[in-house]
Design a protein around this nucleic acid. Structure first.
Length: 197
DNA sequence: GCAGTGATCATA
DNA sequence: ATGATCACTGCC
């Protein structure tokens, strides 16, 4: 069947193949799309992200070198990096930048979900997505969404990385008040938009 | 304020 | 094999 919704185009690898802080900022307002077991899709506006810049960034897992867990971060952009934190919470990241550079963007808030652990719990994301492409075929991907004005995007230090010395203070967290963003409501293959004001 | 929870990785 | 650590959350 023809795909008539231009909004359902997935963000291409080239979008992610750039510095993580740029990607993190531009993902604010994008749509995180998940396809459930029943084949229906749900779209969630991304409203909070964090950038992890590479091996020189002491808050980044890649700073400790290539390990089995972090190998995906060293690979090409546009793949999911999902890991378990504190034995309970799955963290969803998308790999960014050139191959060999261990950089990624953590998705900390999307749709009704605030906090990275709640995003994954709410969307049913676990390590099954680790290493997979952010693409339709995977069942979890990103799409262009709402264009959020720069002035509405706040930059703050990243959360929970106090161990990283000076890197803990760099303003690499990007957040917009969800109330400022039009609500995207969808299910099935024909997403519709509704403005809150 | 802090316990829960278990994969991961360095050390031995 | 063992122990420290952890990009968090929920309940005290």
């Amino acid at each position: 069947m023809p795909d008539m919704a231009s909004s359902s185009q997935t963000l291409p690898r080239s979008f992610f193949d750039r510095p993580a802080d740029r990607v993190a900022r531009e993902l604010i307002g994008a749509l995180l799309v998940v396809r459930g077991a029943d084949g229906r899709t749900a779209r969630h506006v991304v409203h909070e992200t964090e950038a992890y810049l590479g091996a020189h960034d002491l808050a980044c897992h890649g700073a400790k070198g290539l390990t089995p867990r972090t190998a995906v971060m060293f690979g090409p952009a546009g793949r999911w990096y999902v890991y378990l934190c504190y034995g309970m919470h799955w963290m969803l990241n998308v790999v960014t930048g050139a191959e060999g550079v261990p950089a990624a963007v953590l998705i900390r808030g999307a749709g009704e979900f605030t906090g990275p652990g709640r995003v994954t719990k709410g969307l049913g994301i676990d390590r099954g997505f680790d290493g997979r492409q952010a693409a339709r075929a995977t069942g979890l991907w990103l799409e262009p969404g709402v264009d959020v004005p720069r002035r509405l995007i706040e930059r703050t230090p990243r959360i929970g990385v106090g161990y990283a010395g000076a890197w803990a203070m760099k303003p690499l967290r990007f957040v917009v008040d969800p109330a400022e963003v039009p609500t995207i409501r969808s299910s099935g293959n024909h997403p519709s938009r509704r403005s809150t004001r």
